[in-house]
Design a binder for these strands. Structure first.
Length: 795
RNA sequence: GGAUCUAUAGCUCAGUUGGUUAGAGCGUUGCAUUGACAUUGCAAAGGUCAGUGGUUCGAGUCCACUUAGAUCCACCA
């Protein structure tokens, strides 16, 4: 053995052997109880970031259960990450001086598909580098045909159950990226927005958005406000920048008399609160900002200006006409931003598909609250995250699932152009979404503008399970057009646990899919930051689609921040590539340092000293093995028959199956149970070893190891991986090496040597889930009979 | 505005249901050592466990409040 452990010589070969041996498949333990984890699918096109290294927790669970004899399935997948990916691709296009508008829809889609597929191998290789024992034969992609089919059919099911509706509502719309978002995706930030006090006839009101005044359809005051009582219900004639206008005064509780002057302009098309007020008072909606971010024809002379320009121009004009009473330049408010391009989102009225969440949330709450819930019970670890889960589900809002991007699963909904034109009496407006888009290019689609705000527009749509309908069911016309929108990525990933299992092959059952055997899955492990985005939605969709919870346990880890404690992000440029660290310190050290010293669910700071300490630990372990191997050789040279490795030193009578270990058997480590030496020496029961030992100190250490095995096993079962790693680190190094080996060194004989070797291999096995490479290599150097990955967990 | 989390050694963090003298890594100081260990071993210094009050035979751990930091939700015209 080399003097220093060199992970670079070892890791790739070992991973290859595991993979070739088929050890990642649950079928290695054909009769085992099913244990399954679905990998949270990383973005197919982006390289792994440090958060992904936390998959180590899943690998630990899988390896531990595999060693325990479970049929352990860890199913890998990749997410198409719709908007994210299109955003990246558009940047890539921009670098070539092009934009998405240079392509038709099909070409753009095909190009992105290719782009993503060219990047995909990278992500998979990175996962392999970190040693993750994923069953690659079951790899899935969210855009796989069979997955898409399932997503489509569940959309149809939701639609038929009236849990999906189409409505014109205000959405958060990014006029730069050309798509809407769900509430969750909006980030809020404080900005200085001057507050303008504007004269509206006899009234003065305060607003940060004077440019939207052309869309005002009322002004509102608080019903209890004595100052304005006389105006309520009146129609005021006011002077505006575009001449005289009439405006209605309504009373609404929404108005805070303390703010500004206690008078609010109501712009239903461009403000969420105003939209609600408008619904209550039956006010008309007047859109004055287009989807291109420019003022439209209702803005008179300001038409064609971008919002920011228009604000300036409108204020100047108002000042000329003496309509501005004062301006509070330092006013700070919070604005919604696009999480991708950081531009201010515009609330705009748009027809979108929404999911009614309340009926879905109820059983999801029940599944966690009630241990005997009919859909099955889910436990959340650590338990404290239950509060967040309930808080989200109990206050849930309907989910906008349509996105105006091309890279995604297209919504299987069609409408009949003939029916629409008969209904509205006009040709449907074409290309209303984005005036920048030329007619005939990919986003220009018929958008029926005759829908009342908030109303479900079910009548004109035909929803299918994906196949295009041949003709309109009402008028038999074949003049049908599919919705151009695609699903929010999270809509497909919310179906991931069952969709994957319904589409992967089960070798054990000789059936088409794994669903029967592995659903509900055992554990969903992910960062707590996507508990609401993803985990809760999976619970809802899982229960809805299958009647069963998608997983029995939710295990949540914290975030890994940069060495200074700041959140890693591309824009800050402080992202650390886990692969670079694996290259430098070894995958085992990276893995170990991620679970050592951090309790589950807590954030951690990426620590180079900790990585170095972990690397030294792998080296320590390696040198302990080297010492034992050396002693074995010394003993054999002193005339003992064949004690090169301990497997030859185990007396036949203590071996359960009576077989004699040999390097030949080990190196092939066959899986078929019939021909294994399953009870090989490294998994002798403690009792057998204790009976075998003659020296009383050796017996003491056997007991110590035995106690450690039970403690560590208990910690494994309760997701206390920090305890597992800390206890093993302390014991292996500062007890076993510093005290026991130092002691046994001076009195080594054949019997003690066997005990030493056996105990060390037990410790080595305990470390395997966390540090799979070095332990596997050591196991083979010291004559383990099977590959460690498929050896039995010590007990 | 509502909620959650965190506060332990110089730094980064453990401390499982309350139970002797509160631990680790890194750093610091001293000694030893090329021995299985591009090192390792032995030893030392370093903590009123954020503060106040309470429950208890006993509190880092449970409760209340205070302070500081972080995060999330709602969103301000």
């Amino acid at each position: 053995m080399d003097k220093v452990y060199d992970h670079k010589k070892v890791e790739d070969n070992i991973y290859k052997k595991w993979e070739e041996g088929g050890y990642f498949k649950p079928e290695v333990n054909p009769d085992g109880q099913p244990y399954s984890i679905i990998l949270p699918p990383p973005n197919a096109n982006a390289p792994l970031h440090f958060g992904h290294a936390m998959y180590v927790i899943e690998d630990i669970l899988i390896r531990y259960h595999r060693m325990k004899g479970f049929a352990a399935l860890w199913l890998p997948g990749a997410d198409h990450a719709g908007f994210e990916t299109q955003f990246v691709y558009e940047k890539h296009l921009a670098a070539e001086g092009k934009s998405r508008f240079d392509f038709d829809r099909d070409t753009l889609f095909k190009d992105i598909w290719e782009f993503v597929h060219n990047n995909r191998g990278g992500m998979e290789n990175q996962l392999k580098k970190l040693g993750f024992s994923l069953d690659w034969s079951r790899l899935k992609f969210t855009m796989d045909e069979d997955i898409v089919k399932i997503v489509h059919s569940n959309f149809k099911k939701l639609y038929d159950d009236e849990l999906i509706y189409r409505a014109k509502r205000l959405v958060n719309y990014c006029t730069f990226d050309g798509t809407s978002f769900s509430d969750l995706e909006v980030i809020h930030e404080e900005r200085v927005s001057p507050l303008y006090y504007i004269k509206y006839g006899p009234l003065v009101l305060a607003t940060t958005r004077p440019e939207t005044k052309f869309g005002d359809t009322a002004v509102a005051v608080n019903p209890k406000d004595e100052r304005y009582k006389k105006y309520v219900g009146q129609e005021l004639e006011i002077e505006t920048v575009l001449g005289k206008a009439k405006i209605k005064v309504v009373a609404d509780e929404m108005v805070d008399p303390e703010f500004g002057t206690g008078v609010v302009k109501i712009t239903p098309a461009h403000d969420f609160n105003d939209f609600e007020v408008a619904k209550r008072h039956n006010l008309p909606m007047k859109q004055v900002i287009g989807f291109d971010g420019k003022m439209n024809e209702h803005a008179g002379e300001f038409a064609g200006l971008y919002v920011k320009q228009a604000r300036k121009a409108v204020v100047e004009k108002m000042q000329e006409k003496g309509l501005v009473e004062k301006i509070d330049e330092n006013y700070v408010n919070r604005v919604g931003l696009c999480y991708k391009c950081k531009n201010i989102l515009e609330p705009l009225p748009l027809e979108q598909w929404f999911v009614k969440m309340e009926p879905l949330a109820k059983p999801a709450i029940e599944a966690v609250k009630n241990p005997s819930a009919s859909s099955g019970h889910i436990k959340i670890h650590p338990k404290s995250f239950e509060k967040l889960y309930f808080q989200f589900l109990e206050n849930i809002r309907d989910w906008n699932i349509s996105r105006q991007v091309v890279w995604g699963i297209r919504i299987p909904a069609w409408r009949c152009l003939d029916c629409i034109s008969r209904h509205s009496g006009d040709d449907p407006p074409i290309g209303g979404v984005d005036a920048r888009i030329k007619e005939g290019s990919w986003t220009s689609s018929p958008r029926f503008d005759g829908v009342e705000a908030g109303q479900d527009d079910r009548s004109s749509w035909i929803v299918t399970e994906g196949t295009a309908p041949e003709k309109c069911s009402k008028c038999n016309s074949n003049n049908l057009v599919q919705d151009t929108d695609t699903f929010d990525t999270w809509f497909s990933s919310s179906q991931w646990p069952f969709a994957t299992l319904q589409t992967t092959q089960n070798e054990k059952l000789k059936t088409e899919n794994d669903f029967e055997r592995f659903y509900p899955t055992t554990v969903m492990e992910t960062g707590y930051d996507i508990l609401r985005w993803w985990v809760a939605r999976m619970v809802m969709m899982g229960i809805y689609a299958t009647g069963k919870v998608p997983f029995e346990n939710i295990v949540l880890h914290g975030l890994v921040n940069d060495p200074l404690g700041k959140k890693m992000s591309k824009s800050k440029g402080n992202v650390v590539n886990p692969l670079a660290l694996a290259d430098e310190y070894g995958a085992d050290a990276v893995r170990f340092s991620l679970v050592y010293g951090t309790a589950l669910g807590n954030d951690q700071i990426l620590s180079y000293p900790k990585l170095e300490a972990s690397r030294r630990f792998t080296n320590k372990l390696w040198n302990m093995a080297r010492f034992i191997e050396m002693k074995g050789v010394e003993l054999s040279q002193k005339g003992h028959p064949e004690p090169v490795s301990v497997s030859n030193k185990i007396p036949d009578q203590v071996r359960n199956d009576g077989s004699r270990g040999s390097h030949e058997v080990r190196s092939d480590a066959v899986i078929a149970r019939s021909e294994t030496t399953w009870q090989s020496f490294e998994t002798l029961t403690i009792e057998q070893l204790s009976n075998f030992a003659t020296n009383p100190t050796d017996k003491e250490w056997i007991l110590k190891v035995s106690n450690l095995v039970s403690e560590v096993t208990k910690n494994m079962e309760t997701y206390q991986f920090n305890q597992v790693s800390e206890k093993l680190y302390e014991f292996v190094w500062h007890q076993f090496a510093d005290i026991y080996i130092e002691d046994v060194k001076t009195r080594i004989d054949e019997n003690s040597f066997t005990v030493l070797n056996s105990l060390f291999l037990i410790l080595n096995s305990l470390l395997h889930p966390m540090m799979p490479f070095v332990t596997e290599e050591i196991n083979s150097k010291l004559g383990g009979l099977r590959q460690l990955i498929v050896s039995q967990w010590p007990e």
